[in-house]
Nucleic acid binder design. Structure first.
Lengths: 355, 355
DNA sequence: CAACCTATTGCAAACCTTTACATTTTGTGC
DNA sequence: GCACAAAATGTAAAGGTTTGCAATAGGTTG
């Protein structure tokens, strides 16, 4: 832990040149004589000199560090974004730092202060932004941050704050899921996990309702404040067991795969078989979703692609806050958790009424 | 993006004091008259001045940044470690940067160079360290890094390189699993995913064999080079279908939960019921493991605890490279994927022989 | 009121590079 | 060998803080 006191001046002295020349050699400036460069490099290697990027950062007014703010990197969606951001940053020689939203899921002034003090080169903000007490302040806080560095969000639009944005088209993604179920013949579909307090869920919900209306489907919403497997299990059990068979949905769409895990478990526990009694669609295409019983049909949000695009946008300085974000369209991954509804139920088999 | 040119000198001039005084106010130095401090703070607020931590870092010779190196932050084990590291770092006002091992899973000289140039305050290295072509160079590379900053690893011991280390006791963890199965009456147990090329798997395997020997169990190893669900599915199917019923294991321990997912699927697909025909134990206690069918008994490695302890050790300067690492003992989470073997099979029911 | 002590503040160096500009060296064409 | 251009190198300022030391202000004691 001692060598680090070696400076460019020591190297210059040892190589018999000026520090400017050493600097030029190290940063591959073209106008350096080959012989000089060689000698400098020899000395650098001999002493194991390592330039100090902090000093360089001070002078160049950039840190070569990107900040990523997200609620929970343990969640696979965020992990995918973060991982992709790291890879993109690496390509241009930058590093990524993780910052966590505070316990309320809020971007606080303190956090922003820290980002500014560290003179990051840009910030990637990912999250759903629950309608929290300080939501009113969010635009002002972000506006302040934006005076200092570019921002790209992977989030719903934030009213009162314009910036570059990347976002999955959940609305039409969920419509794909409804269409898929409709094409199998389902007429009553439930959407589980419909808390509308985050925008991302609101969009799913809206897409669901629109598709149901368009396709003449009886769409029902089940609100659940948290989207855990446990909540999914309880919710679906209650829903199925308190209704007459004719009123039960024949298919459910679950707000994310994790919660769908609980839904599958709850259905099994109540004696329903999947997909024959109930078809299930998840959302996220988690790596485990292909191995549930049965393998889960799910909407792939493609978190890594979101992270990749957002980071590119950040580093390319493509900060055009166009009203329309760059949109990634989710893909419906069809597996075995959906089938045609059993002919047994209320309205018989074939499609006699609507197209 | 203009304000940032405001310096401490501007504030000092405006407040009618010297820059030293402003610095003292901002860093809460005790010897400042209350009135002066107040005036300075007013000016700071008025202009929205934000100190430049790069300049501070240059002078203080520290960056208040910790580096975390790991193979894949998308993997829940690593995500847990990284998340915990972030929280611990946050507590002391530091940030964490993620670095990825290169495509061979190797710590390269280039990576180390980058860490040194950035003058990080310390490095947390997590990984299994496959016996790769450059494994011989690893000690030298890490030794070089250690000259510049403290290192703590969450990894097996690295021969030729001493440093502080935190590690799960996989050896005795797996023994717990074997003991559990033995107590249920199992006599033939397979360990799936036994590639011994990473130390972490080697320890599991060794613990497995020792426990089997001690308890008089017929322990079999199934080598699989990659630990994916797909590999698990193929492996278990092959193993069960190519053996006479009497030679099949009545229980399997899988190297991680993800692979166990595939094992469960493969067993179901071949018509085995779990746990009656085959008991299954996983390893990791992933958040989805409680929701498999049936819920998976698994060994909880406690990644977050590992990350927390390692980061603490790093920031506390507790770099004692004692030969024995700080050890976290995994906990066996008992769920419903294990039961007593069916009385049907070869050796009949009750426990006539060993305790 | 002098002497002295302490709390407060200011001065200026130091941290380590990069780079605009000036200077020196080298090369080319005649 | 000269004039000139181009290439290579050096000089020194700048980037924005922190902090040891010196200086000043304010207060206390005798």
């Amino acid at each position: 832990m001692q060598d680090s006191r070696l400076t460019i001046i020591d190297i210059a002295r040892e190589a018999g040149v000026s520090s400017a020349t050493v600097s030029r050699v190290l940063s591959k400036h073209p106008n350096v004589k080959a012989a000089t460069a060689l000698k400098v490099r020899e000395v650098v290697d001999k002493y194991g000199y390592q330039p100090n990027s902090i000093a360089r950062g001070l002078l160049q007014r950039q840190s070569h560090v990107l900040g990523v703010i997200m609620p929970d990197v343990k969640h696979p969606y965020y992990a995918g974004i973060f991982s992709a951001a790291q890879r993109e940053a690496e390509r241009i020689g930058s590093a990524v730092q993780l910052y966590r939203l505070d316990y309320n899921g809020e971007v606080t002034l303190d956090l922003v202060r820290q980002l500014i003090e560290r003179r990051l080169d840009g910030t990637l903000l990912a999250g759903g932004f629950i309608e929290s007490p300080n939501a009113k302040e969010l635009p002002a806080i972000l506006t302040r941050l934006k005076q200092y560095m570019p921002i790209v969000t992977i989030s719903p639009a934030i009213p009162g704050f314009e910036c570059a944005r990347v976002w999955p088209d959940l609305h039409s993604g969920v419509q794909k899921a409804v269409e898929h179920l409709a094409s199998l013949g389902h007429k009553r579909i439930a959407f589980i996990g419909a808390t509308a307090d985050t925008r991302s869920v609101g969009e799913r919900q809206q897409g669901f309702l629109e598709a149901c209306k368009r396709l003449g489907i009886d769409g029902m919403l089940r609100y659940e404040s948290i989207h855990t497997p446990t909540a999914g299990e309880a919710c679906v059990t209650l829903m199925m067991n308190t209704r007459a068979a004719a009123d039960r949905p024949t298919a459910v769409i679950v707000v994310n795969d994790l919660m769908a895990l609980g839904v599958l478990k709850g259905l099994r526990g109540s004696g329903f078989t999947i997909p024959d009694d109930v078809a299930v669609v998840g959302c996220d295409n988690q790596f485990y979703s292909a191995f549930t019983d049965p393998p889960l049909t799910t909407l792939d949000i493609n978190a890594e692609e979101l992270g990749r695009l957002a980071t590119r946008r950040l580093v390319n300085g493509d900060n055009d806050p166009s009203p329309n974000p760059i949109v990634v369209v989710p893909e419906l991954i069809i597996r075995e958790s959906c089938a045609a509804p059993k002919a047994a139920g209320s309205e018989g088999g074939g499609g006699d009424d609507r197209a």
